[in-house]
């Protein structure tokens, strides 16, 4: 335990050398706790930790902190997402302390989708600090037991620090260096953007491995099973930073509409198989968006069950 940074389940699974399998759960647009608990049940036992999104796509939802606590109460481990869009450094540090006090041990540090995408485009955006600085801040609070202003923390929050990486955004040639910067800032694990362009990801991972980044940080490959060709089309056109090759859309369109979901899952499973063997990949982050009930089947068919108990 002493050599663990946070003692979270995700950290232990990764440290023990297991192929990690994380999930994701978006809090509701309301305070419907029962619905949330129902979604948790599909994830429980099937993943090592569950990302709890923070007002994703800049749409107001139940706070990720509160939803993370509800998740702990149901016996799951959250990966508490925090964006710098909505909080200044005071609120950020305060929420990190609160999160730790409530039992949260994993954090994913993000800048967040710009508020013009969401349902409150009139809002003031904060961006006092950026995602890179947030990573460094959480690390400082954990390792130096100090706030950003160098004042001491009495009981320091010991978080397993996560960061995102989008190999498909531009400028491509800089992306691997940006990943290196995040690791230098203090990221213990990385969850990538949803991967669809496998050729590009193979190239990206080769670059990351050549730089030795996989030895400094656990890299989890992001997978999102497509429900149908329409979803692939929509994500390709409207979700920033998505790279969906035409061949994927063609593959989904190539089967009957009623079979497209199965085709989407098949592609996701093929990806998981490849990631299990891909050098530098330490696990998969399965983002079954509003499709949590499919996670048990996906996990089963991906042959990642039972999840290790460490």
């Amino acid at each position: 335990m002493s050599d663990l940074k946070s003692g979270s389940n995700l950290e232990k699974v990764l440290k023990a050398g297991h192929f990690a399998f994380t999930g994701e759960c978006g809090p509701p647009k309301g305070a419907d706790v029962e619905h949330l608990k129902e979604k948790f049940q599909y994830l429980k036992g099937n993943v090592d930790a569950v990302n709890v999104t923070d007002n994703q796509t800049a749409v107001v939802r139940m706070s990720s902190l509160a939803a993370s606590k509800l998740m702990i109460d149901e016996g799951l481990e959250p990966n508490f997402q925090m964006v710098t869009r909505d909080r200044n450094r005071l609120a950020i540090m305060s929420d990190i302390l609160g999160a730790y006090a409530l039992g949260i041990r994993n954090m994913l540090c993000l800048s967040g989708d710009h508020q013009t995408f969401g349902n409150n485009p009139q809002a003031k955006n904060v961006h006092d600090i950026d995602s890179m600085q947030l990573i460094a801040l959480v690390k400082k609070m954990r390792d130096e037991e100090k706030f950003m202003n160098d004042e001491d923390i009495d009981v320091a929050p010991k978080m397993f620090i996560g960061a995102a990486c989008n190999p498909f955004a531009d400028p491509y040639e800089y992306r691997v260096y940006r990943l290196a910067n995040k690791i230098e800032a203090g990221a213990d694990f990385i969850q990538t953007q949803c991967i669809f362009n496998m050729d590009k990801f193979r190239d990206f991972m080769k670059k990351a491995v050549d730089m030795g980044l996989h030895k400094k940080c656990y890299i989890l490959a992001g997978v999102t099973p497509m429900k149908n060709a329409g979803m692939a089309n929509f994500m390709s056109k409207f979700v920033p930073g998505m790279d969906i090759p035409a061949s994927i859309i063609k593959r989904l369109k190539g089967v009957d509409k009623k079979n497209q979901a199965e085709e989407g899952i098949k592609f996701a499973l093929e990806q998981v198989e490849e990631f299990k063997e891909m050098k530098g990949v330490a696990g998969v982050h399965m983002m079954a968006i509003e499709w949590e009930h499919m996670v048990p089947e996906i996990a089963e068919r991906a042959k990642v069950l039972p999840r290790p108990v460490v």
Binding site: R85, F117, A169, P171
Partner: peptide, 21 residues
């Protein structure tokens, strides 16, 4: 930068264009 990032670019940068517009 739409997010005033000091350690950018964010994941929404595409073909030299910002995700917001």
């Amino acid at each position: 930068c739409a997010k005033s990032l000091m350690n950018g670019p964010c994941g929404g940068s595409s073909d030299g264009v910002c995700e917001i517009n």
